[in-house]
Amino acid sequence: MELLNAIILLLNYTIIPALTYGSQLALGAIFVTLIYGVLRFANFATGDMMSFGTMFAVLLTYYFQSIGVGLGILPTALITLPFAIIAMIFYMLFIDRFVFRYYRVNKSAPVQLAMVSVGVMFVTQAIIRIIIGPFDRRFLDGEKFILKASEFKEMTGLNEGLTIKSTQAITVVITIILVSILFWFLNKTKTGTSMRAYSDNEDLALLSGIDPKKVVMLTWIIAGFLATIGGVLYGLDKSYKPFVYFNNMLPIFAAAIVGGIGNPFGAFLGGYVIAFAEIFITYAYKKFFTYLLPESLAPDTLVQLLSTDYKFAVSFSILVIVLLFRPSGIFEGKKI
């Protein structure tokens, strides 16, 4: 019984939240890795592009709520996703046409493009502040919980409750669907293969008749999907605050690098590595040990390795360790 309580405790406070957070990071990390693999630069505007897409979803959610359109128990934001994705793709293609393309055509160094993306980041941040402002917003509606702690306790008679929020289930399900479609597309379709070929050997891809313009456009379209969906899922689960999205760039980059930059499957797994590490290291295990250990040994302190304020330090440490010991990422495998 004590053991079961301890397991439920861990599930509730670490494993389920880490799976959710990991999925959200994974989508961002695949976005980073795709841009890096195909367009060959580190996109520092990642966090704010995710924020930009989410902003549309938030505004449209308010609009749909005001005209009384909803999905019942599911969040209204899910209907707004297609519109937000389209808006995001247009914004990305617009930025690419008027900013990135110039440097690509001139064959600028990757670091120059990365700096350009910092500029795009600032501009995007400013646009977001003008349109929606810097405040924290919640736009989740519909049924909040799939399983409430009290219901779980009644059902099982355990001391510890297990809560499954609807946003957690939605996040995991949508991530699995999106990532499966993406990997099927990249590995099994002619267009996906041509994208991987372009990323692998640009000159030979040109000689084989692959049109670079199409590959670039396609990359931004996929990026639009990943950024918007990743951002909306994060916003639904926590809340939408533009600055937090900017902050999330560190764990997202860490996930992409842990997975081997340029390798989408690695980035996907990297998201979970970072999320689990952050949550396991910042979780206070006091109650967990109280269940498992005899009373005399029960801990007096919180048994927390690091305060949650330092959760970014965890991603940063992992990033540094990976770069020192396995610079090509901890997962073997082919690049995109």
Binding site: K190, D200, L204, S208, K334
Partner: peptide, 26 residues
């Protein structure tokens, strides 16, 4: 008109079959 460059003349990260498929992209 087809060309085999001196270096980097294959897609090293793709499989043999995928290399052939990309060759037939057009």
């Amino acid at each position: 008109i087809s060309f085999v460059p001196q270096t980097k003349n294959v897609f090293a990260e793709l499989t043999v079959k995928e290399n052939l498929e990309v060759g037939a992209f057009l």
